[in-house]
Amino acid sequence: MKDKKILSLIIRWLILIVVLVAIYLPIALIILYSFSEVRDLGGEYGSFSFGLYAKLFQNKELMTATMNTLAIGLISAFLATILGSVSAIGIHYMTKMRKIVDTASQITVVNAEIVTAMGFYLLFIFLRDVLKISFDLGLGWLIIAHTVITTPYVILSVSPRLKQLNPNLLEASMDLGATPFRSLITVMFPQLLGSMISGFALAFTLSLDDFVVTSINGGKTYTISTFVYNHIRRSGVLPEVRALSTIIFLFVLIAMIIVNVIKNKNLKKEK
């Protein structure tokens, strides 16, 4: 009996370690090599240095791509949060057609990204060549596209919270003299703030990750992912990307820690 127990314990630990290593090995490799100036990983590691980080901030193209990524991510996530939250509230209070609209708003979530990407590209052509509305693929178009793609995810994040709310909350507010708009701002949004922040984070992450839509609809505008991809095709991995990846990873890690600390504090408060 005892032997069996020990064996099962060993197996469990082994599986855990294998999984964790598989997840973190690639990231660890990037972080490790972000402090080496060697161009290809096959070469000699050399000495520990922050050289790549210095180079990163001097690489104008990469810095532009980073700024684009952040701009698209933040602006589209902000717009998607507003649109998605208002839509979720609208859908929640619908009486007829609610199920249909709810489902319709979620289909793009499961749809293949290539379809969305091609759709936007064709829409661009349609607007330019058929309706003669002349503009270029680029930052503005990408912000619109990312907002449209991420809005359903915000709805997905806000809807469950709405279902938990007291059904008479809005009525109570209007009963006390608040107009529907004021009720929305002073009563509804405070209840939804948490889920709206989650929705914003989700939308921002999705925008950051996006490659397919961005590469087809970006024109001459590059984000980190499209820039890195193009660079690999032309001349292999740019060493500075290792430093950039490390920074992004640390940024996400810190954000995660902060969110969890706040959550724990709120949980304790409620108790």
Partner: peptide, 8 residues
């Protein structure tokens, strides 16, 4: 209201 509907 029956379920109070206080603003949480």
């Amino acid at each position: 209201f029956q379920k109070y509907a206080l603003f949480p």
